[in-house]
Computed example of a mutant assay.
Amino acid sequence: MREFVPAQDAPAVRLLREAGAVILGKANMHELALGVTSNNQAFSPVRNPHDLSRFAGGSSGGVAALVAAGVVRAGLGTDTGGSVRVPAAVTGTCGFRPTLGRYPGEGVTPLSSTRDTIGPMARRVADLVLLDEVLSGDDTPVAARPPGSIRLGVPTGHLTGRLEDEVAVRWEAALRDLARAGVSLVPVDVGSFTEGEFETGMAIVLYETRVELSVYLSKYRPETDLTALTALIAGSDVRGVFENCVVDGAPALVSEDVYRECLDRWRRLRTAYADTFAVHGLDGLVLPTTPATALDLATCDQGMVLCGEPVDTFATFIRNTGPASVIGAPGLSIPMGVATNGLPTGLEIDARVGADRELLALGLTLEEICG
């Protein structure tokens, strides 16, 4: 897609221009938005401004790096499984995934209509509030809430228990700071909407990518079909996904029957998520955005070690951002402080479907407590 120059602005870009924003251009990213490292083989990797040997997260790593380096005040990424919040966490910036469908998505190269959304990124939550108003048309006033009025669920189990040592230290400090400020913290079992979430969400993405990217190509690049596109993919990781799961004859194609089953599970996950908030009277869920800090670019695509065990980089870095993504709920990552290894960490806050402005209000408060 490197030669593709759109004939007109996407609606989201048009809204920003009309509001007075200056659009500089497109940033580097993980190829076709299918990854968390932004170790782009076509244009070279995105580097983390805090340590140029480390990745900037993905898939929207380039925007996060530009914001973190002070080149721009804000930018747009896209978030299917964590692609705005992961890079925000590892670069010490703020990233917001809105409720599914809140922003116009026309013109965005698609992966999954069930999961894709544009998401703004900035250095401060106040700028996200402004961008959300422009992109959504929702001008509901947003102000920081008194800490004593906030009730947050803290997931129990592996989401908060299996963390890199440096992240664990910052996480425990954040919990202490929140409690000291007067925020009510409630342990919550989130198994009802996290068990099987990764497998369900990935099957939905792989099926919808095949269908929706084909439609996109036929509209905007009719000379390029999925097979031709796959041959042009520079990164072996992304090309492997297409060859194994997307193109005609791929050995791991997701069937329509499996896709329909996954949509049924998706609806049950959404119900369980809403029930969890209602039963515990929660304003939000809070957890570390990523279980680890930014990895070395030289080895990040070979996997990683977490708590002494080898694990997959992609699955690990979207582990905590995935549930809200699959459910279509809003999620916000704000800085959680710098770890002992000198790298940023992120604090994820998730809210009820549709509670976007309420979530941003929580972010204004927690930013001052934990940043």
Rank of each mutant, 00 (worst) to 15 (best):
Met202Pro: 01
Gly371Lys: 02
Pro141Leu: 12
Gly58Asp: 00
Asp127Leu: 11
Arg145Phe: 00
Tyr259Leu: 04
Val215Glu: 15
Gly281Cys: 08
Leu131His: 05
Gly25Phe: 14
Ala126Ser: 15
Leu163Ile: 05
Ala294Val: 04
Ala10Gln: 04
Asn40Cys: 04
Val22Gln: 14
Leu269Val: 00
Ile233Cys: 07
Val305Thr: 14
Leu175Met: 10
Leu152Met: 05
Val84Ser: 07
Leu282Ile: 10
Gly161Lys: 03
Glu256Tyr: 15
Ala122His: 02
Leu297Asn: 02
Glu243Pro: 03
Leu135Asp: 05
Glu3Thr: 11
Thr109Arg: 14
Val63Tyr: 05
Ala278His: 14
Glu208Ala: 02
Ala122Leu: 05
Ser255Leu: 09
Ala42Tyr: 13
Ala10Thr: 07
Thr99Glu: 13
Asp301Thr: 10
Gly35Pro: 05
Asp283Ser: 02
Arg2Phe: 13
Ala252Leu: 15
Leu213Met: 15
Cys245Gly: 06
Pro291Arg: 03
Asp356Gln: 13
Glu133Lys: 15
Ala355Thr: 09
Phe193Thr: 06
Ala292Ile: 10
Gly235Val: 02
Leu34Asp: 06
Ile204Tyr: 00
Thr365Ile: 03
Lys26Asp: 10
Val254Pro: 01
Gly371Asn: 01
Ala173Arg: 12
Pro98Trp: 02
Val247Ala: 02
Ser333Gln: 01
Thr230Asp: 08
Gly75Ile: 08
Met304Arg: 12
Asp296Pro: 12
Glu197Ala: 15
Phe198Met: 15
Gly62Cys: 09
Ile118His: 10
Gly331Ala: 15
Ala250Ser: 11
Gly235Asn: 13
Val71Pro: 02
Ile23Trp: 14
Arg267Tyr: 06
Ala74Ile: 09
Phe43Ala: 07
Gly82Phe: 03
Ala173Lys: 11
Gln302Glu: 14
Thr290Lys: 12
Pro291Tyr: 02
Glu261Trp: 09
Gly75Cys: 09
Thr99Phe: 07
Val36His: 10
Thr209Lys: 09
Thr156His: 10
Ser113Gln: 12
Leu332His: 03
Asp139Thr: 15
Ala250Thr: 05
Asp312His: 08
Arg102Asp: 07
Val84Thr: 12
Ser149Asp: 14
Val169Glu: 13
Leu332Glu: 00
Leu232Arg: 14
Trp266Cys: 05
Gly25Ile: 12
Ile327Val: 15
